[in-house]
Structures are given as structure tokens and as C-alpha cells.
């Protein structure tokens, strides 16, 4: 699966993490994929659920083993 855009939110904390993802997703069309690089802890615990609540589908999560994760999100994948 290839991402259409990439976003790094390891430099911000909640709720800015979510705001940045929302803005990035605005730029994409339904069916396109966003790759997100985010931190362990609050971001990984909260961001996937918020995305689900907003109707986007997580395709996969990869634990990079350095306290960060990579998330593949399908825009509008649940609506």
C-alpha cells in the first residue's frame, strides 16, 4: 500500500496532533491514504480512535521500536 501524503506529528502534543491530521486529511480525497508518524503514549492511544470516530479507516500500524509508530489511514474509509 502506498501513501498519497506523509505527515509527521512527533513534534506536537494532543490536541494539536489531531488538528494537524485533520488539516492534512482535508487536502486528500476520499479513498486516498495518509501516512502518519506519531509518538507512543497519548498520541497513539488517542489518534486512532479519533480517526475512527471521524469515519476514517486505519489500515495498519507499525511499531518502529523507537517510541514512535507509523499509521496508514484511508480517508473516509468507514463512511
Amino acid at each position: 500500500m502506498k501513501a498519497d501524503d506523509f505527515l509527521d506529528i512527533t513534534d506536537v502534543v494532543c490536541p494539536i496532533t489531531f488538528v494537524k491530521i485533520k488539516v492534512a486529511l482535508e487536502e486528500l480525497n476520499d479513498g486516498q491514504i495518509l501516512e502518519v508518524h506519531l509518538n507512543a503514549g497519548e498520541p497513539i492511544q488517542n489518534v486512532p480512535r479519533s480517526l475512527k470516530d471521524e469515519g476514517h479507516k486505519i489500515l495498519s500500524v507499525e511499531d518502529l521500536g523507537d517510541g514512535t509508530f507509523t499509521l496508514l489511514v484511508l480517508k473516509g474509509g468507514l463512511s
Binding site: I44, Q45, P48, S60, V61, E62, D63
Partner: peptide
Amino acid sequence: CIFCGVCQAV
């Protein structure tokens, strides 16, 4: 299940 790994991560 699509074995995405989210549950493990969260």
C-alpha cells in the same frame, strides 16, 4: 480482523 495492529499499539 485485518491484522492492522492498532489494538496492540493502543
